[in-house]
Design a protein around this nucleic acid. Structure first.
Lengths: 181, 181
DNA sequence: TAGGCCATGTAATCCGTTACATGATTGC
DNA sequence: GCAATCATGTAACGGATTACATGGCCTA
């Protein structure tokens, strides 16, 4: 129910085409809201017909034409209204936790497999933390000299970093627990 | 794609009716996998016709009859197979992060509203942490004397506790950042 | 007597995922 | 020559959400 709003925020930060938005959802915004290009094009069409965004046709040579979207006054007001509404309780879907509790009903081989999988998962998140820390160094080298938008982007990134650190610590706890069974 | 598996784990821990499962998804399992009773009944019907679970009709007086489900051998094997598969990358949906970045495009009143909302959200999660800690004291008073299933349930609960603590710290960071704008 | 709990469902709609489709350009 | 990137879509399916429906019992 909030892909529209994530798109509005992204387009306010920087206007762009559906393709460019899909790229951002793969990178920065994807840290806290995921979407595929199919979803983005569909929602963008609806947002356009509702007057939340307008497209500017940009002819390019050597490249397909693109439609660059910007947020209208109505879109801005719609976002402001949504910002005032309470945060909806989020749908939790933590597959690894289900698997860990499920490990009580497998044999030793199954548990060894889970241990290997947790190790792999941990390495993935260690790499993700490294890219976050890299991005922080690159984008916010001097935290004292940031404008409002950058300070807000930075605090969200710090949330991602805190989450990954917490996750790595907990995965170590999980590995110890599985080894000690 | 894994509600089935969450239900299998829950029914292996303790057989029960659709209604009872819905209650568990509101309480303990809902910490890492949410589902409504409508979803549960639908999936349960499919699982029954696939032979993953069997129902036992229990007539009750003064109460509607209920159908108590247990996991079959096939259900157990299906779960074991799923446990061996890699964890799917999770779909992230962090509405609050979208709102924080969106706050760059509102006025002072909008930001004051967001600050109030973050404060409310923080209180909610403080209460949630308290219930987790309470549950930990109640269900795992002596961590040295637990069977395999309990140790796994405990490590998952510790994950929830670590998450809530991390979240509260980050929300303090967010509140400071919003106040300093 | 009103509201909450036990117990199970149907129907409509919306959202998300997966697969498929097109076509030019640039770099290895 | 092949793969990746840019750029935009359609179609089918399945999962999730929301609303509605039934009905008896128990407690304040």
């Amino acid at each position: 129910m909030a892909l529209e709003h994530a798109i509005l925020v992204s387009l306010l930060e920087q206007p762009g085409s559906g393709y460019e938005l899909a790229g951002r959802f793969e990178r920065s915004i994807g840290r806290f809201w995921t979407a595929t290009h199919q979803q983005i094009y569909r929602v963008l069409r609806r947002m356009e017909s509702d007057g939340w965004v307008v497209a500017e046709e940009i002819g390019q040579d050597g490249r397909p034409d693109k439609r660059s979207f910007s947020v209208t006054g109505l879109g801005r007001r719609t976002l402001a209204e949504w910002l005032r509404a309470p945060v909806q309780p989020e749908a939790v879907r933590h597959e690894l936790a289900v698997k860990i509790r499920g490990a009580a009903f497998t044999d030793g081989a199954g548990r060894a497999d889970l241990l290997a999988e947790v190790t792999r998962y941990r390495a993935e998140h260690e790499a993700l933390l490294a890219t976050y820390l890299n991005g922080e160094k690159r984008d916010f080298p001097d935290p004292g000299a940031l404008d409002v938008g950058q300070r807000l982007q930075h605090v969200v990134l710090r949330g991602g970093i805190a989450y990954e650190r917490m996750l790595l610590d907990w995965l170590d706890d999980v590995l110890h627990t599985l080894r000690a069974l």
